[in-house]
Structure formats: C-alpha cells, structure tokens
Nucleic acid binder design. Structure first.
Length: 419
RNA sequence: GGUGGUGUCGCCUAGUGGCCGAGGGCGCACGCCUCGAAAGCGUGUGAUGGGGCAACUCAUCCGUGGGUUCAAAUCCCACCACCACCGCCA
C-alpha cells in the first residue's frame, strides 16, 4: 500500500510511476479528492463527537429540568454523530479500497515499459558448445530415473510430477545447499505454513479476489501460497521490530503452489512450469533507507548460488510494467537452457520498500523511539526449476550428468548415471 | 466437534454503566545520589489519524465485529484466539 501522506505531498511521483508501468495516471486525482473528502468528513465527525462527550458528561452532574434539557440535546447529538461517523467510515472504506489497487511506486532507474523492455545488466559465462545433440531435461529425467512426469499426470493431472531417486536427491541437495549458504550468511532458517489466511495473502500484495494464480480453499477461507514470501512477510505483521536488530533475515523453505491459469500451451513439457514446486526464499526486513543496498546484497547471494551450480546466466533489470503489485524494483537471474536456446528465470529478487509492510503493519522503532514502517525484500536461492538447468547444462553424450562440484557433498553423488 | 474458563497500554495486573475518556507493579528511559555502580528517591513511559513551526491539542483504540444507552473495558449478540477436560482422527 502506498503512503497517502507521500501522495499528498508529491502526487507527481505516483503519476510518473504509473506512467512508467503503463497504468492509469488519473487515479492520482481520484485519490487526492477522495482523501480530501474523507479528511473533512472525519474532522466534522470528530468535533461533533467532542461536543457529544462534553454534553454527556454534564448530564451526570445536572438534575431536574436542566438534566432533561441536556438529555434531549445529547440524544440529538448522538444521532448526528452516528450519521457523521457513518459518512466518514464510508468514505474511508471507499478510499481504502481504491488505495489497495495502486501498485508500489517504482524505484528511480527502473526501465519503463512492459515485459520485453527489460535491461540486461550482466551476462556470466557463455553457453556450452555441444559435440552431440543435447537431450532436454524431460528425456534426461527419464533416462536417469529422476523425474516421472507420466505418473505425475496420472496421479494429479497436468503439470504435476514425481521427483524420484536421484531427482529427489538432487532437489534435496540443492535446497540444502541453499539453506546452508543462507545460514552461513546469518539468515534464520524457516519452514513455513503453506496455507495462509486471506489477510496474509492480501497484505503481501496478492488480490485474492482476482488473482487467477491462487489456489483457494473456500471451505476454510485459506489460500495455498505461491511462495514462502507470503508467510514470511506476514510473520511480523502487526509487530514493532527492534530497530537496532535490523535487518531481520529469514530463509524459508516451502512448497509453492500456482494454478498457472491462462498459460495453456506454454511450457507444457517438463517441469519448467508446474503447479507445485519447492523453493528456498530469502526474506529481509530492514529500514527503508537501507532497502536499496539490501536488494544488492540479496542479488549477490543469488549470484553466489548460481555460480555454485556452474551454469551460464544473465541478470536482467525488470521493466516497470512487469514488476507486479508490490515490487519497486526487480532483478531476475536467468539461466541458459541449451535445448530451448534461451535464458529462463531461475531466481528473482524484489525490493518491496514499505509497500507490503504498510499493508501488514510491520514497523520498527527508530533511534528516537518512534515507530516507522519497515521495508521488505525477497529473493530466490533455489527452486525445483534449477534442476532443469543443472541437468541440461551438465549432461554428457551418454546421458549421464555431472553434478556440479559444490553440490556433490549435498547430493552424495559425483555423476548421475542412466539406469 | 462438545463443555467450561480466559482475552486490559512490552510483561503482570486493578477494573460489574458516568469519580477508568484506563489505576498500580515490573521492565525501560532520563535525572538526583555515587569515584563508578547497585540500592534508594524523583520524573517520564503506547499505537493510529487530524490540526499546529512548536510546546501542544482533538479523535479513535481495553481480542474482532455488531448492538443497547445521552454515556460501554464494564450490559447483550456473533465471531476469533488461547487454556483445560471430553469425543474423533493421525
């Protein structure tokens, strides 16, 4: 949620942000006038309420005719106060609803435009030259007895899979390596709930009413998370953090669930795009003024992980229109997938500034003892999808796959061999 | 799922309609005292929103949401969380 005070003081900032995202600019004026109306209604209610309280107090002191007169006046006021309060509340609700639809203000330097307007910041390594026709991860997964897509479909439907044998070992090793790196960097490891309440989902910046990605359990009013960012963001909801102890850094391991509605025909083969996968996610709470630097640190930790699996990748600066609701800036790391001949997203780190924290009421106490809204950031350390990049980039002519050096102790194997 | 109990400003607690539109203790901060500290004494001690350069001031907040009343922490209703016991399941 954007800050209304900032909006009042500098509406042009939001206008520019909306323009960069390719979204409606006129909402700024609608917000301003609605805010103005709400504040005046609230002021009217408050002064009426103050008078009501004074009259009410004098009732208890008065007696006889005087008391009756005061009672009459008090009754009259009570009705007016009720009406004024209702009006202020209605305007407040209208404003809240509208504010909740406004995406975060983009960080300065973000490339404007849509999905294809990203800027490549860096390319690390270069695609390998194969002296044989490389197999895709599905074929390799079958050969190695690592991925069972057919039975995934039989048991659960399209976009489900089983990781079997070395596949399961590969994922466990990869995610454990991610956890270990995070722990060594000072993160608190977390295993989170994957079902959350609507307020946790919405606080994090997902609109449960319209988001077609979210699995819902209406019977229980619970929602399956698409990332552990959700429970980790809501973890400190309604709390005031110790300013001296910031940043708070968590590494969450969870399964993630996505409906992938509307992606029919996209990535139908393999485990690139699936309904359920596992992920280790970094999550930071810090002071807003430190968020930019913290974002760079998260990116650096992602690159450290990427370097451990020894695949070529690039870092892109996502364009404003592709940031989503909560992010002010987003960097994606994309690995080279040989059989697709292109880079695919393996990790993503977002600076959500104070946007999520304001919705979730996460604050910290500053040096003056004042409560301030915190900033939140997140970034991926490893996911099931990384297996695709590992298998395809490290395959050999006979269908075996060399396990990257750093990963060997975690997987317990140097080479994955066809069965 | 059932029955009973509990839910107050970081923690503990007072509080059965206007003197609580929230008192006390602990903790914490500052000051006095001290060579320094502890103890002791004194002062202060939340959040959100509005107004003001500011000291300050007004409103809201006693689990959440409704209701009764001129007036609600206090009465009524619903819901939620926690605790205990029972049942059911793993």
């Amino acid at each position: 949620m954007i800050d209304l005070r900032t909006l009042r003081e500098d509406p042009d900032r939001l206008r520019a942000s909306q323009r960069a995202r390719g979204e409606d600019e006129s909402i700024v004026d609608t917000l301003l006038s609605l805010d103005e109306r709400r504040r005046s209604a609230l002021g009217a209610f408050e002064s009426m309420r103050a008078e009501q309280k004074n009259v009410g107090k004098s009732v208890s002191r008065a007696s006889g005719d005087e008391r009756q007169a005061l009672l009459d006046r008090a009754k009259e006021l009570a009705a007016q106060v009720k009406a004024a309060e209702a009006e202020a509340a209605a305007l407040g609700a209208e404003l809240d609803e509208l504010v909740m639809t406004v995406p975060n203000i983009v960080e300065e330097g973000t490339p404007p435009g849509g999905e294809d307007d990203y800027v490549v910041l860096e390319t690390i390594g270069s695609p390998r030259e194969f002296e044989f026709a490389p197999r895709d991860h599905v074929e390799l997964g079958e050969l190695l007895g690592a991925i069972d897509i057919e039975r995934g479909a039989k048991v659960s439907g399209a976009r489900f899979y089983f990781l079997t044998g070395v596949g399961a070992r590969l994922q466990l090793g990869l995610l454990n390596m991610a956890m270990q790196q995070a722990i060594e960097a000072g993160f608190t490891p977390m295993i989170t709930p994957v079902l959350v309440k609507p307020e946790s989902m919405q606080g994090t910046g997902f609109t449960i009413a319209h988001d077609s990605e979210i699995y819902r359990l209406p019977e229980d009013d619970l929602y399956l998370v698409g990332t552990s960012e959700v429970p980790l963001a809501a973890y400190h909801g309604d709390e005031i953090l110790d300013g001296k102890a910031l940043p708070y850094r968590y590494a969450g391991w969870s399964s993630c669930f996505r409906r992938e509605a509307g992606s029919y025909g996209k990535d139908t083969r393999g485990i690139i795009r699936v309904h359920q996968f596992d992920k280790v996610e970094m999550f930071s709470y810090c002071r807003p003024e430190d968020a930019h630097d913290e974002h760079q640190r998260l990116l650096a930790w992602e690159k450290e992980m990427l370097s451990k699996i020894e695949v070529p990748y690039r870092v892109i600066d996502t364009a404003a229109g592709d940031l989503g609701m909560s992010a002010a800036r987003k960097f994606d790391c994309e690995a080279w997938i040989p059989t697709q001949g292109r880079y695919r997203e393996l990790s993503s780190t977002s600076n959500c500034t104070d946007f999520q924290a304001r919705r979730l009421k996460v604050r910290y106490r500053d040096q003056d003892g004042k409560a301030q809204v915190a900033a939140t950031l997140n970034g991926t350390l490893a996911t099931t999808r990384w297996i695709v990049a590992i298998l395809e980039n490290h395959q050999q002519a006979d269908g075996s796959v060399l396990v990257p050096q750093a990963l060997r102790p975690y997987v317990g194997l140097d080479v994955l061999k066809p069965q």
